[in-house]
């Protein structure tokens, strides 16, 4: 691994191994992951299913504990979920008994902060992703894409330093997914947050990221890290350039050479 870090990394994983089960049924999901996530960068964890990328993400989010190794977040060892970390999942996870606005406000409600104080911000976020007129609607009145937009607003509401995104648009159709990725990049740049995206889509990983961490399956481990040097903001045209295609090919080669 050849990462050169100027400032201290926001997240540092050191020898992180995760085993599930025990004895004969023991399964090594993730083996000796060493990884640094730099402040402000967009990093993707790319790999086939079963490579432990979601496990790695859940450990970074404090939802799972590592069997071996440790994670530091902002220089401190992470042992439990932090308010500074926001997570997004493959499903939007909108509660059907809450309006879109109330779903977006859920985090501050859990934190025991005043919902009133955040209401304007929630409305602003909803209008930024173009669904402000649905603030009072229920999730089941929204399309899948609109629900994920709302989920994006929810995760951004309390300005987390780190966004952990577990294939957040994986359940959406190709077109919506592309739009949502654009939306995500725009908002991440706007909020200057750091993002880690889990994906099995090579093109998506290269398009979105500053760096792509390529992983192999069973046991999940890091193969290498690909630097993606393109300027931001990035537009879909980028995907047809020869430099882009070359990087995608390189990532593919890394995956096949495992």
């Amino acid at each position: 691994m050849t990462t050169t870090t100027q400032t201290a990394p926001l997240v540092r994983a050191t020898g992180v191994t995760k085993k599930f089960g025990s004895g004969d049924k023991e399964m090594v999901a993730l083996s000796g992951l060493n990884l640094e996530v730099r402040e402000g960068e967009f990093l993707s964890l790319l790999g086939p299913s079963g490579c432990g990328k979601s496990t790695a993400l859940n450990i970074m989010g404090g939802l799972l504990s590592a069997t071996e190794g440790s994670i530091t977040f902002g220089g401190k060892t992470l042992t439990e979920p932090s308010r500074q970390i926001g997570m997004m999942f493959q499903q939007a996870v909108m509660f059907p008994w809450r309006t879109t606005l109330d779903n977006v406000l859920l985090p501050v409600e859990i934190f025991g902060e005043s919902k009133k104080k955040y209401r304007a911000k929630a409305e602003e976020l909803l209008s930024m992703v173009g669904i402000s007129e649905f603030a009072g609607s229920y999730p089941w009145q929204l399309s899948g894409g609109m629900q994920q937009r709302a989920a994006l607003c929810r995760v951004l509401l309390h300005d987390p330093k780190l966004l952990l995104l577990d294939e957040p648009f994986g359940a959406l159709d190709e077109f919506t997914r592309e739009t949502m990725n654009q939306e995500l990049l725009r908002l991440q740049a706007h909020t200057k947050s750091t993002a880690v995206l889990v994906t099995h889509n090579i093109t998506e990983a290269v398009f979105m990221s500053d760096r792509v961490a390529v992983m192999s399956a069973r046991p999940g481990r890091l193969i290498g890290i690909l630097e993606i040097p393109f300027d931001r903001p990035r537009t879909p045209d980028l995907q047809t350039t020869s430099d882009f295609v070359a990087l995608v090919a390189e990532a593919r080669k890394m995956l096949e050479l495992q």
Binding site: N58, G61, G62, L63, E80, P81, S82, R83, I85, G86, M87, F89, Q90, Q91, V93, F95, L106, P107, I110, F111
Partner: peptide, 17 residues
């Protein structure tokens, strides 16, 4: 749903919440 439980956990929700 496990994802909904994980969302609550990621927000640091108490058992009661």
């Amino acid at each position: 749903e496990p994802n909904a439980v994980n969302l609550m956990r990621s927000l640091g929700a108490s058992r009661w919440q």
